[in-house]
Amino acid sequence: MTMFKNGGGRSAIVWCIFVLPLPAFLILAYFLPMMGILSWSFTDPVPGLQNYARIAEDQTIHLLFWRTLRICLTTAVISVLVAYLLAYHWILGPPARQRLIEMAILIPFWISVLVRAFGWLILLRPKGLINENLIALGIITEPLAMVRNEIGVVIGMVHFMVPMAVFPIAAVMRQIDPRVIQAARGLGAGSVRRFIEVFLPLSMPGVIGALFIVAVFSLGFFITPAILGGGRVVMVAENIFVRMLQTANWGLGSALAAVLLVLVVGLIWILSRIVRLDRLL
């Protein structure tokens, strides 16, 4: 700490070397290009608000946003449920189970999202491992439709999102004083009541945080819906890609991107009102 107190000159140098590069990099590589893209939404093909007017009126674009929100919400709810169980056993389980869950959470992180999407395709497609085996076992006669629809997209996205949801939930669970749970027990509460009246309410900030984090991440999902949806379950991000690079409608694409950005920022703002973000780390 003393280096910060050795006069203004020294600390200014420290700031320039250690702190400034990050904001400078973000401004050059992220903020300026983004401003450029956003400016297209007001200038392409002609100056004006016609791109936003179209978003406000076009039924297919409304459907696109509803579908995106619906998939994000479903993904968030399912991911958080699965993550809650994992986090619970990760924090409170016996050591062997804790190690197993750590592996289950960390290994998916090392595998590319592309590889994972294709992996699910191999498992879920009509002639995939699951359908072939179920037919061979005589449980079903027709293959189940698990890809090229929302089910497939949600499965792939949940698989990606569960680890992201485990961390904030586990962080909050770890801060719960075990003596409080013991106190509930000493006062006569059985395991169900201890969970519902004490543990669950105390872990809710983690649950809410995880719901928002997963929802925000999901809004921009591109690869997983593109592969497992097979072009039939188009979400906003994929639609932006198509409009910009395939139909060359840069103005409408960037207007959609702007709306998506506002949604993401809005969700994060609401989250920051509900829970203290630093408790989720």
């Binding site: 003596r179 409080v180 013991q182 006062l187 006569g188 009246e197 309410p201 105390l202």
Partner: peptide, 29 residues
Amino acid sequence: PAEARNFGMVFQGYALFPHMSVARNVAFP
């Protein structure tokens, strides 16, 4: 088991339920 013993317990550090009001804490048992 502890929950079946009908013993009161005061813990080191109190171990109050932080999300409940004083009245709800006391009403818990």
